[in-house]
C-alpha cells in the first residue's frame, strides 16, 4: 500500500521580512495509513510550518508533497481548499469552534463546503454520528460556552472527522487542557487510531507524545529524530490510575 503522506525534500522559505527565513530545510518523510505520529520541537524548529504544509494550508517553496498519491505542490488556492475539505481534518489548540453555534452546527461546518452535496437531514445524521464517536451526541444542542474545555475539543475532533478524512492533523490539541482532560482527549485519539485513522499531532509535552506510536523531533527546520515509541501509554490505563490517585488524595485529605 502506498504511503498516505509522502514528503520529498520539502523546503519552506519566508520572504516577507528583510532577511529570508528558512523555516524548513529539507524534510523527507513517509506516513502510512494507521500511523499516529507526534511532531515535537522547540519553537522556531519548523514544526508549525511542517504542519501547515501537511495540512495544505501552505505550499512548500521547494520539494514534492504527495497526499494520497496526488501531488499537491502545484495546486491553486481553491484546489487546496477542496483537498483540505475532502482528505484532511483539523484540530486546533484553541478548539476554534464558532461561538453561539450549537455543537451539531459546528460539526456540520465542513459539509457546507467542498464538492459533495448533502441534504440537511444527511448533514444532521452525519454530524450526530460524528458526535457519537467522541461521546457527545447528548450535547448536540449545547453551545460551546456551555461545554468544558475537553468537551469543546471533542466537538472539534467530531468536526474534523465528519468528512471521513485520510489524515487527522492536530496542532497542540492538549495545549489548553489540564492533564486529566488531556488524557481524555488522547483517549479519543487512540480510539480513532485503533479504528485505522491516520493522525499527526504537534505537541511539546513529552508525556502526551508517549500516547502516540511514532515521535518525530525537529530542530532548525530539520528532522533530528524519528523513532517509534517504545513503551506506549494507554489512555484508559492512565485514566484509571489518575482516578485512583484522586480518590486516594481524598482519602488522605
Amino acid at each position: 500500500m502506498p504511503p498516505v503522506v509522502q514528503l520529498e525534500d520539502i523546503h519552506k522559505i519566508y520572504d516577507s521580512g528583510e532577511v529570508p527565513v528558512h523555516a524548513v530545510r529539507g524534510v523527507t518523510l513517509q506516513l502510512h495509513r494507521g500511523e499516529f505520529m507526534a511532531v515535537m520541537g522547540a519553537s522556531g524548529s519548523g514544526k508549525s510550518t511542517l504542519m501547515n504544509t501537511l495540512g495544505c494550508l501552505d505550499r512548500p517553496t521547494r520539494g514534492r508533497y504527495l497526499l494520497d498519491g496526488v501531488d499537491v505542490s502545484g495546486l491553486d488556492r481553491n484546489e487546496l481548499a477542496d483537498l483540505r475539505n475532502a482528505k484532511l481534518g483539523f484540530v486546533f489548540q484553541g478548539f476554534n469552534l464558532l461561538a453561539r453555534t450549537t455543537a451539531r452546527e459546528n460539526v456540520e461546518l465542513p459539509m457546507l463546503y467542498g464538492q459533495r452535496r448533502h441534504s440537511s437531514s444527511q448533514m444532521h445524521e452525519r454530524a450526530m454520528r460524528s458526535l457519537d464517536i467522541v461521546g457527545l451526541s447528548d450535547r448536540a444542542d449545547h453551545f460551546p460556552s456551555q461545554l468544558s474545555g475537553g468537551q469543546q475539543q471533542r466537538v472539534a475532533i467530531a468536526r474534523a472527522l465528519v468528512n471521513e478524512p485520510q489524515v487527522l492533523l492536530a496542532d497542540e490539541p492538549t495545549g489548553n487542557l489540564d492533564s486529566k482532560t488531556s488524557v481524555e482527549v488522547m483517549g479519543v485519539f487512540q480510539k480513532l487510531n485503533a479504528q485505522g485513522i491516520t493522525i499527526v499531532m504537534v505537541t511539546h509535552e513529552l508525556d502526551i507524545a508517549r500516547y502516540c506510536r511514532r515521535n518525530l523531533i525537529m530542530r532548525d527546520g530539520r528532522v533530528v529524530s524519528d523513532i517509534p515509541v517504545p513503551d506506549r501509554l494507554v489512555a484508559e490505563v492512565e485514566m484509571t490510575r489518575l482516578r485512583e490517585a484522586e480518590s486516594a488524595a481524598k482519602l488522605t485529605d
Binding site: 488556492r77 481553491n78 481548499a81 483539523f90 465542513p110 463546503y113
Partner: peptide
C-alpha cells in the same frame, strides 16, 4: 480562518 481551513473557497 476556520471556514477556509475546512475547505471554504474565498
Amino acid at each position: 480562518g476556520i471556514r477556509l481551513a475546512v475547505g471554504a473557497h474565498g
